[in-house]
Simulated assay, not measured.
Amino acid sequence: MKISAIQLNSQPNLGQNLEMAYNFVKKAAGKGADMVALPENFAFMGDEQKRLEQAEEISRATEKALKEWAVEFEIYLLGGGYPVPVENGKVSNCARLINPNGETIALYDKIHLFDVELSEKETYRESDMVKAGRDIVVAELFEFGMKAGLSICYDVRFPELYRELVKQGADILFVPAAFTRPTGKAHWETLLKARAIENSAFVVAPAQTGKHGKKRETHGHALIIDPWGNIFADAGEEPGMAMAELKLDDLKEVRRKLPALEHRVL
């Protein structure tokens, strides 16, 4: 299975972002990707209030585009996180996985919300606008004999989520993200490697990079990591993509040689 983790510099402009995402999906498919994963906030990023106000339009346009692209390029396509209106004036941060027939096979609402104070000038309160999800989501990728476990960004700091995904059969752990520059520099690669190693699973992490609007700045480095913790591909700091071939036999071999998942006590 050849997979591409896209890296974008999304802005508070829906049409521009969808055009940019489409071009990268097309490029990845042209290079033979069977599955393409887009990052968190790929359709709109940089002004949280406008994102909330435009959530219905963003959601409608995004879902239509994802379905059309999956069918056009005959690929699995993960929309890594976009706003979907829910009750009480809030949105969910939703990841949608679509198969090559244009059918939605999984929906995941981000469980862990990014409420942090990194400095006096950099504070985030995702829960002010987003309703947290509750469901753990694993989807079958039938043609490839593997299962995909879904998560989004801040989720990566909670290893119990990924252990549960693997207990439910996940072979590939998806972590589409918009990691801030300071936390990304400090923790991004380490956390992703840890999730891969401790679960003997592939990790695919599409990312945002650069400045978004006037204030937000992200780390970049979309990564694909193997079950041994080796980095297959790193997109660096510019918009682009990480690509790699994931082989089920390689995953099985790691789990055979080091059967830590079978040795769990708790």
Results as ranks from 00 to 15, higher is better:
residue 241 M to A: 11
residue 41 N to M: 08
residue 171 D to M: 10
residue 190 T to P: 05
residue 175 V to P: 03
residue 105 I to C: 01
residue 239 P to F: 01
residue 29 A to D: 07
residue 174 F to C: 08
residue 192 L to H: 06
residue 162 Y to V: 00
residue 245 E to Q: 06
residue 259 P to A: 04
residue 89 G to I: 03
residue 156 V to H: 07
residue 261 L to P: 00
residue 156 V to S: 12
residue 213 G to T: 02
residue 251 L to A: 03
residue 12 P to Y: 02
residue 251 L to G: 06
residue 183 T to N: 12
residue 31 K to V: 01
residue 228 W to R: 15
residue 181 R to H: 09
residue 24 F to E: 14
residue 205 A to H: 01
residue 177 A to N: 15
residue 198 E to L: 13
residue 11 Q to K: 08
residue 263 H to I: 09
residue 42 F to N: 00
residue 144 F to V: 02
residue 9 N to I: 07
residue 11 Q to D: 08
residue 189 E to K: 14
residue 76 Y to E: 02
residue 159 P to E: 15
residue 215 K to L: 10
residue 195 R to L: 05
residue 197 I to E: 01
residue 150 L to F: 03
residue 245 E to Y: 07
residue 188 W to R: 04
residue 57 E to Q: 12
residue 218 T to N: 14
residue 164 E to H: 09
residue 32 G to T: 06
residue 158 F to Q: 01
residue 70 A to P: 03
residue 94 C to H: 09
residue 83 P to S: 04
residue 193 K to Y: 08
residue 5 A to I: 00
residue 98 I to H: 05
residue 103 E to K: 13
residue 252 K to Q: 14
residue 29 A to H: 02
residue 203 V to R: 13
residue 207 A to F: 09
residue 63 E to F: 10
residue 207 A to P: 05
residue 152 I to E: 03
residue 158 F to K: 09
residue 140 E to R: 11
residue 209 T to I: 00
residue 88 N to T: 08
residue 61 A to D: 13
residue 146 M to N: 02
residue 182 P to G: 07
residue 33 A to S: 13
residue 224 I to V: 05
residue 57 E to T: 15
residue 61 A to P: 00
residue 127 S to R: 06
residue 207 A to H: 09
residue 93 N to G: 04
residue 243 M to D: 12
residue 130 V to H: 05
residue 178 A to V: 03
residue 235 A to E: 02
residue 202 F to Q: 09
residue 259 P to F: 08
residue 203 V to Y: 02
residue 71 V to I: 14
residue 137 V to S: 10
residue 115 D to K: 09
residue 229 G to C: 11
residue 185 K to C: 11
residue 80 G to Q: 10
residue 222 A to N: 05
residue 28 A to D: 07
residue 65 A to R: 00
residue 245 E to H: 07
residue 192 L to V: 10
residue 83 P to L: 05
residue 140 E to G: 04
residue 47 D to E: 12
residue 164 E to Q: 13
residue 98 I to N: 05
residue 119 S to H: 12
residue 40 E to Q: 13
residue 49 Q to I: 15
residue 59 S to V: 02
residue 172 I to R: 05
residue 112 H to Y: 13
residue 229 G to Y: 02
residue 108 Y to P: 11
